[in-house]
Design a protein around this nucleic acid. Sequence first.
DNA 1: TCGGATTACGTGCACCGTAATGATC
DNA 2: GATCATTACGGTGCACGTAATCCGA
Lengths: 287, 287
Amino acid sequence: MIEIYLLEQLAAFARHGTLLAAADELHISQPALSRSMKKLEEQLGVSLFHRENSKISLNETGKLAAEYAEKVLAADRDMIDRVLSFDRQLRTVSVGTCTPFPMWEVMPILQERMIGMAITSEIAPDDRLISGLKSKLYQLVILHQPPEDKELFCQRFLEERLYVTLPQNHPLAKRESLRFADLAGNSILVSGNIGFWMELCKRHIAPSHLLVQNSVEAMGELVEASSLPFFNSDRMMERGYDHPERVSLPLEDDDARAVYYIACLSQDKKRFGSVFSAVREAVLRKR
Amino acid sequence: MIEIYLLEQLAAFARHGTLLAAADELHISQPALSRSMKKLEEQLGVSLFHRENSKISLNETGKLAAEYAEKVLAADRDMIDRVLSFDRQLRTVSVGTCTPFPMWEVMPILQERMIGMAITSEIAPDDRLISGLKSKLYQLVILHQPPEDKELFCQRFLEERLYVTLPQNHPLAKRESLRFADLAGNSILVSGNIGFWMELCKRHIAPSHLLVQNSVEAMGELVEASSLPFFNSDRMMERGYDHPERVSLPLEDDDARAVYYIACLSQDKKRFGSVFSAVREAVLRKR
DNA sequence: TCGGATTACGTGCACCGTAATGATC
DNA sequence: GATCATTACGGTGCACGTAATCCGA
């Protein structure tokens, strides 16, 4: 069998056309490369080069060999990539969530209970979360509908309620609470990347009045600089996104209230047992 | 990059399940293999084995690695195969011929003019010969029809005429010559592997009367032991397949006479120049 | 006690770099 | 003389084998 380092050297020579340039790239001396190419020919038992005094170049066989050398090298690199990524997957908990807030609660729990594991999270719609769980793209998902699938283990998590934050002098600021319908005709700011909430907002607010801000900085500046109302939530406000100089009113519509569920594959229930019990405690603390 | 010898060792371990058995197959010692597997894990930076005292086995990552190792090894072997076979092709003149006789003339010419080259020959129908020439399966072909293709260089070669050899007491033995029609009702022997002649014989002789002998020995024995007529040719007889105690009569039908043509790709004309001139001389000598 | 893995240790080969040589422009 | 390949020579790392050790059936 031909060793990889010989094929790497052949491939480098094929790219550069001279032993000197290839040796330079490979960080070895020309003599070393010259010997390697001889060795390669010897091991294959065929001639790969035209040699005329101080000029060397690939012959037809050599060109073919270089072509196939690339394939072997690609296979070798592919093996390394696949093994490394598989191994990393084993050391990673991937969490899919329908909206960011529950992740804020889950992240510290995972960091504490899944020691040594990397944790990644991603926002996606509920259906993508469930299919991702089954295809093992995610090991845990946070939904806003309890799944009916028997292959999944599911546990109720926290609740969240949508608010609207308004300047104190806004016509609606005197109210106790609001409904989406009350907002008609008002432009209103909303953060991008809020998962399923975005779909909900789009259902209730006309597109021309819904000012989506994908950058957190832009959102912050607009809130400060303008007197526009913006969407908020009880959980956001808990986390410091309250604005004492403004008025925050809860939305009374049913679908402005979400209950979150955390789920895994039934086969992983044991693995995440301590996570689920920590989640239960967190729910009790919030009451 | 991971070297091939490490992947071979991993693959051998994956096949055998113990270091001892794998080391045995690889003709190395267990310690050497044990160290190699450690080295492999170290180079990849991941764990590939469950180790419990005097028991070692692949973990999930290891199984995946072994699977991909096989692919790399296959790519490596494939490279060697392709290069070797390409190289051998460069050192081989493949001749395709429509029937064996012309090859007898061409073979000594090629052996003399294409020094150091291996020579292979194969019998095939004219259309396959021409497509084989274009696909470089053959470098030279011998046809019995001059091709009209401009990409081919073609030169007239020898002629051959079909004969029938009969016992002296055969009813037809008194004739000066024959036509296929005269043979009606007679069983007649014919060698297999005579290329296009076989198609011709089948056109003129009823299947039940055409006794095809694929083995040269069987043909020889049947000729000796029976008084059956058999197909022969002027060129065969020149070569010692004459039977002095029997009568050989030429067939007068037009298609019992063949003119051979030798052809190559136009781009190869120079390469085979000396072969074509030797062929011209051979034709002149035969007149 | 045996099968099987690992550790310890010494050795030789194979690959490497430096220097010199050869060859062409 | 500059560029580039090859030959010569000496050094060293590393993969190997042998021997010893460890561990479980």
